[in-house]
């Protein structure tokens, strides 16, 4: 299913970031995708299920959170999981493409991508 991806801050993202970016709270609050209930129904998924999201720039598995966005769009809090999906090309502006990206989304039985998985993607 093709949806429009936006990223940004949430209170939970901000609070858990201050707790520590390697904390389990940060993982719980940031490795998530907010999806509209109608789109969840069409995808055949429930809240808490894993979803694979893929853009032109990368692919990651996140936990579904119900609502918080419009039908036809998904919202992922800013952070390392969103970074896998966003584009580094700034079109000469300095500003990368962090909102309004086209994403392919599907339900999956895979585990949610961990911070260690992302650090491995970085080569770190």
């Amino acid at each position: 299913m093709r949806l429009l991806l936006n990223t940004g801050r949430t209170v939970d993202q901000g609070v858990s970031m201050e707790r520590g970016k390697t904390s389990s709270e940060y993982f719980e609050k940031v490795a998530v995708a907010f999806i509209h209930p109608d789109d969840m129904k069409e995808l055949g998924i429930d809240e808490g299920d894993a979803v694979r999201i893929e853009t032109d720039f990368g692919s990651t598995v996140l936990k579904c959170v119900k609502g918080g966005t419009e039908k036809g769009t998904i919202f992922v809090p800013m952070g390392p999981w969103a970074n896998v999906l966003t584009g580094p090309n700034t079109e000469g502006s300095g500003m990368p493409s962090l909102k309004g990206l086209t994403a392919e989304i599907s339900g999956t039985k895979e585990k949610v991508t961990t911070l260690d998985d992302i650090l491995r993607m970085l080569g770190g």
Binding site: M78, P80, N83, T86, G87, P88, L122, G123, G124
Partner: peptide
Amino acid sequence: VAHFPIGASQHLAK
């Protein structure tokens, strides 16, 4: 690394 697209952060790791 927490807020850049991974395509940019990968160079920081190198």
